[in-house]
Amino acid sequence: MNIFRLLGDLSHLLAIIVLLLKIWTTRSCAGISGKSQILFAIVYIARYLDLLNTYISAYNTIMKFVFISASLATIFFMYVKFKATYDHNHDSFRIEFLIAPALVLALLINHEFSPLEILWTFSIYLESVAILPQLFLVSKTGEAESITSHYLFALGSYRGLYLLNWVYRYYAEDHYDLIAIVAGVVQTVLYCDFFYLYITKVLKGKKLQLPA
C-alpha cells in the first residue's frame, strides 16, 4: 500500500458516499444515470468474487463489501425507493454495447483463461467505460448539479490516482499489470473533458453547464 493507492481508494469511497448521501438527503436521483450504476454494480460483483476464495487483508475485504453494498443500495434507491425522480428519458445509453465488447475482450485478452480471472478482466474493461452513460446523460441534459459534479470528480480522480500507484509500484516493486494499466488510462482519459469543465467552472462557483 502506498499513498497514491490509499488516496485513490479514499477518493473512490468518497465518491460512492457522496452519491448515496445526495440521493438520500434530496430524496431524488435526478441527474444520475441508473445505467452507469448498474454497470458499476456488475463491475464490483464480477471483480470481488474473489472474496469467496482469497483473503488479502481486513482492509481489502471491508472495502470490497462496502463497494458492493453501496452500489446495490444506490440501485435500490434509483429503481425502487426514489423511482419517481429517476430521469428515464435522458438515460437512454444502451449498456449492452459496453457489456458485450468488454466480455469478448476479456475472453480474448486476459492473464489466465480461468472463470475468476476472466471475470476480473471483464470487470476491469467494463469499469473503464462504465461512466459513459452518466457522461451521456450530462451531455443530453446539458448540465449537472454541483454535487453530481463533485461525485464525478472524486470518481474520476480515483483511477487517476491509481495510475500514479501503478507508476510507483513499477519503480518500487518491479510490479506491473498491463491490463489494469491500459484500462486505467482509458478510464481516466474519458474523464478529461469533465475534469476541464470541473476545474474551470464548478471550482469557481459556477454550475457545470455545457455550451449549447
Binding site: N60, F67, E112
Partner: peptide
C-alpha cells in the same frame, strides 16, 4: 509481474 491468482488492488 505479480501472481496472476491474486489481485490485491481494489
Amino acid at each position: 509481474a505479480g501472481d496472476v491468482e491474486e489481485h490485491d488492488e481494489l
